[in-house]
Design a protein around this nucleic acid. Sequence first.
DNA 1: GGTAGACCTGGACGC
DNA 2: GCGTCCAGGTCTACC
Length: 320
Amino acid sequence: MPARQATRKPAGTRLTITPPADFDLARDVCSYGYFILAPNHWSVADQTLTRVLHLSDGPATCVIAQPKDKLSIRFDRALSPAERNEAKKQTSRMLRLNEGESHSKAFHTVDKRWRNPGRARLFRSPTLFEDVIKTVTSCNVAWPSTVNMNTQLCRHIGVGGAFPTAQKMARTRLGTLRGRCRVGYRDQRMIDLAKLFAKGQIDEPWLKSPKTPDDDLFKFLVSLPGIGPYAAGNIMQLLGRYSRLAIDTETVRHGKAVLGMTGTDRQITKKLEAHYEPFGDFKFKSYWFELWDFYESKRGPAHLWDREGVGKTFTAAQLQ
DNA sequence: GGTAGACCTGGACGC
DNA sequence: GCGTCCAGGTCTACC
């Protein structure tokens, strides 16, 4: 009988990243609703973010922790040198590590309310495509449906539990998106968007360039299928442009309930634009942290939210 | 340029 | 358990 060989699983890769000095994983991940959406999973017990990243050799699950001042990213498999670079880029985008301390200070100079809690970063996705599709899943729908759509997209279209790539979604049948992923009439729009990304017809360097004027960016975004004024404003903040609000019913509700505004929705929209005007290039951040502060005043700190409970019912409509 | 109605889904509600 | 109503942003047709 041959000697039994020890079967040791190859060690997964572990990356270490030095974030900006004011970065706080729990606060900065749990700062925007996308941290609740699949494939993201925030562990309240461990205070870590787990998700599948789509890398060139296939999906890889990573666990991001911040034991001290460094970020530790542990993968479930070994990554090639090229994949390590991809993983670092995607993680940096997701956590907005490109927004350093100077960016935070500039924001806090304009809006001092968030200096002490240190709020300055908004969580986003590893890729622009995921951010755009997530934005579409948040339009004209209650939050629990947005949660479900993203869960089903990862389950039925994403490889290995990852968020679907543009290439994969572009090849997906309408019936799969509608029947299995429950995206409803958004099916055709999502496939059209995926095709634009897959064919390279979305000029990402132009979208990301600081030289591109905000107005040009907005005009381009609203020309995309499924993207209207709200979605375009939201995608702008996801691109790092905070000079516009993304006004939806939640914004109007905030204007009424928290800021004490009165009038028709249209009048309140104008009042909101005027209210946030003093925050200039940081309008969206000032608005968003006000809204987030309201949620946390009702439900406690976001990094302690129960995923199945609060995470699915955290809109202001259900908090009033 | 402004407005009305359709588009889907899922939750709330009444029976 | 079933049927009805409603919320939610975008798109299209129409004025």
